[in-house]
């Protein structure tokens, strides 16, 4: 599991506020603990589930953090974590990637579709709450799509991609040859992709931010 931000352990809100203020006064190195704290959740719950490509996700994370450092003076402390602000930057970067790469529109929309989370500045929703909520929402969408697949396809995906069993073990569990299992997984991922896109079409269009 990607490490999730904690509220009181290492980087409490007060400490975070102090670091942000230091950075806003010109000591950009003060951003380091904040970035180290939130890089994991941003990658694991915001960027990668929307991109699906680890290398691109790492690049987007790097851009997100660099933009945050560059624009830290524009950030206004509102009594809650800086995480929602970082998350919004990350989402906008992901949109940019999808716009630039001419991928299948349906799947791209499905992947970048923003999940509603509590980002009301007046609230005190902290980073962990947001990350947890986001993770749950992503998972519900994936599970919902899996439910629409035929049993053998669903099982193939669960064994190979979620439990990460070897091809040999997966084939043994399903009572087929490795070659047949390869075909099952191939078709299962194709079917998932198709259903996932249809799910996105039923969902709300993506929201754009102004960060």
């Amino acid at each position: 599991m990607a490490s999730e931000p904690a509220t009181t352990v290492e980087l409490e809100l007060e400490q975070e506020q102090r670091l942000v203020e230091e950075a806003q006064q010109g000591n950009l190195d003060a951003m380091r603990p904040i970035l180290e704290r939130y890089a994991g959740p941003l990658y694991g719950t915001v960027i990668l589930p929307r991109l699906g490509d680890a290398a691109s996700a790492e690049e987007v994370l790097r851009d997100t953090l660099a933009t945050a450092v560059e624009k830290i003076r524009r950030f206004t402390w509102q009594g809650k974590s800086i995480y929602p602000w970082l998350r919004q930057i990350a989402i906008n970067k992901v949109y940019d990637v999808h716009r630039q790469s001419k991928r299948s529109r349906r799947l791209a929309d499905a992947m970048v579709h923003e999940i509603d989370v509590e980002t009301d500045p007046a609230s005190h929703a902290d980073a962990q709450l947001i990350a947890d909520q986001e993770r749950r929402a992503h998972r519900e969408r994936i599970d919902e799509t899996l439910r629409h697949l035929q049993d053998r396809y669903r099982t193939a995906i669960e064994l190979r991609l979620i439990q990460e069993l070897s091809r040999e073990d997966c084939a043994r569990r399903l009572g087929v040859t490795i070659g047949t299992f390869d075909v099952l997984l191939f078709r299962a991922v194709r079917a998932f992709r198709k259903h996932f896109g249809e799910y996105a079409e039923r969902a709300e269009p993506p929201r754009t931010g102004d960060t």
């Binding site: 994991g40 699906g52 790492e58 991609l161 979620i162 998932f192």
Partner: peptide, 29 residues
């Protein structure tokens, strides 16, 4: 493969190694 990675990421199977994470932060700064 992106679909496969999305499924894995959503189930928490993909994360950035600590060394990679440090490197990304350093690069960003």
């Amino acid at each position: 493969l992106e679909v496969a990675t999305v499924i894995r990421a959503t189930h928490g199977s993909v994360e950035l190694a600590p060394s990679q994470e440090r490197q990304v932060v350093e690069d960003a700064l």
